[in-house]
Design a protein around this nucleic acid. Structure first.
Lengths: 313, 313
DNA sequence: CTGAAAGCGCTAACAG
DNA sequence: CTGTTAGCGCTTTCAG
């Protein structure tokens, strides 16, 4: 009985007579045989692993996204390799190289620290979230423009006249910027003053916010509304409360992302919510199409956002 | 010029003359050659990937741990495969099987849903956190006993006389249980009444807590102190505040884990903090020793915990 | 120092 | 239906 038959049996590919089947099964059990994945990967020319590159899953949004992506990939029989760039472009580059070295079958990326060209050189499955890498690489993101508008209209509707926006200027071409632009545009239209406080996009952790806000006391004191990412909003709430400002009377806070944490807070934070499960599903579905070399790949998918009214506005 | 020389060159193993070196370098550049990781994995009999099994990184503690572990593994040149069991033992089993199939070089696990025997059958590098899998598998965990004591003494010191503990009964042998036992023991000693509210350990997300607390209104109303995990504490704070109970005057809340979220909240939550970076470092260091088949493996490592005084007590 | 050759363990034609 | 035979692409003796 040959080794090929065993292979056919295990992979259910090709015919195997009932008798051989039984014998093989017995042998497998007896010898405690387990197929070696590394050998399979080599001859099949695939590893069944997808790398997911994220800036840092300290950020609630990315943590949630990674979680959902893992669940989706698992459903398709793929394993997830976490690729946390921890804010450094070196790490992002190294993870992309991995694709070339055939360690993973594809990469889903939402990191922003590397020039687009690095990605464009790779001729393997890549799906990008929130980062336009050229038209040959599928791009998926939320309707950030609508997000900016929802926030602006809400704050305006609550009577804000002097608002602050906290956000970074990304070094790359990302649709995320639309939320800042649209927010400002809508406010301008309503003659509401908007000031943008620039944060270093690659330093986004709580300690940084705490430190950053220290330097903005006066501006915060003076404003009546603020728009920031989930973690930024949480930090602002914490900070201004310590300053003795009452939320929402003294200052209204709206967050962007709307991860679970905004709902765990007391009060719940008003937020524009991205549909993370849907984003994750689209990333994975698109990756599967790319891997299967299917023709019906949608190269630009935008998902809806909605406003969650909480106690901070 | 033979293929072997190229291999020696790339891996810096064995001698290569300067001239050959240059020629190879040129060829690599010209042909844009990249070594195939899958082939390497097969012949080297290793993949450079470590699987990290966690119950669910919705839980702040595991999310932080995973993050740190990835950073440590990366420093050693290893990649991290996320293995989120999402509360199901099937998934945990499947991930363990992966080890057998030689997909990963080792597994760091902190999941609790599978009988110990499943792990003991595997004769490959495994490091366990918070789950005693027998003396042949290194066990790493925080000093949960001290943690329980710190919380108990603190709440007692703040004048609590009637406290609640929220926690699960794990289906496996885990040192985490010590914190419940010690908490109760210390309280008993001081003649303080303790009631334990049992939660389903495998349903630990915010929605569950919210629902669970609904059914405990009376008990909460009646108590003056409570001890729960980070997320549990956050949920309690949220819930009792909505009920009109003032924290800390009406109820004192102490959390267990002490992840960043306890510091992001307003007020900061009093918590017993586990040293997550140290735990992660120990897990990874131990894994490296196991892989290198070194003799100096410490099979039982306990790390210290400390109390963070916040505004909820 | 270098090349030939034998695997690593499995998959995939291709004749029987 | 099944066994034989090539690979997959790299590492690693082992002569030379």
């Amino acid at each position: 009985m040959g080794i090929a038959t065993v292979s056919r049996m295990i992979n259910k590919t090709g015919y195997v007579s009932e008798e051989s089947g039984k014998r093989i099964e017995a042998a497998i059990r007896e010898l405690n045989f387990v197929p070696n994945e590394r050998a399979r990967n080599l001859s099949r020319k695939k590893s069944g692993i997808i790398g997911v590159i994220i800036p840092d899953f300290q950020t609630p949004f990315y943590a949630s996204l990674l979680r959902q992506v893992e669940i989706e990939l698992y459903a398709y029989g793929y394993k997830t390799m976490v690729c946390n760039t921890v804010k450094t472009s070196d790490r992002e580059k190294e993870y992309i190289d991995m694709l070339d070295r055939n360690m993973v079958d594809g990469i889903i990326t939402c990191a922003l620290s590397v020039e687009d060209s690095v990605y464009q050189m790779v001729d393997k499955p890549i799906v990008s979230m929130d980062h336009d890498l050229g038209e040959r690489i599928p791009l998926i993101h939320s309707d950030h423009q609508k997000g900016g508008r929802l926030a602006a209209e809400h704050l305006a509707g609550q009577g804000c006249r002097k608002v602050i926006q906290i956000g970074g200027s990304f070094p790359v071409n990302t649709p995320s910027n639309d939320r800042y632009l649209e927010f400002e545009r809508v406010m301008m239209e309503k003659n509401i003053s908007v000031q943008k406080l620039e944060i270093e996009w690659n330093h986004i952790d709580y300690a940084y916010y705490a430190h950053f806000l220290q330097d903005c006391r006066d501006v915060l004191q003076d404003a009546d509304g603020i728009f920031a990412s989930d973690m930024g909003a949480i930090a602002v709430y914490h900070f201004v409360t310590d300053m003795g400002i009452h939320v929402p009377e003294g200052l209204k806070i709206a967050a962007y992302d709307g991860t679970d944490f905004t709902r765990m807070m007391t009060p719940v934070i008003t937020a524009v919510c991205q549909n993370i499960p849907l984003l994750a599903a689209k990333c994975v579905d698109t990756m599967m199409k790319l891997i299967d070399k299917r023709e019906d790949v949608d190269f630009h998918q935008v998902t809806d956002v909605y406003l969650q009214k909480g106690g901070t506005t």
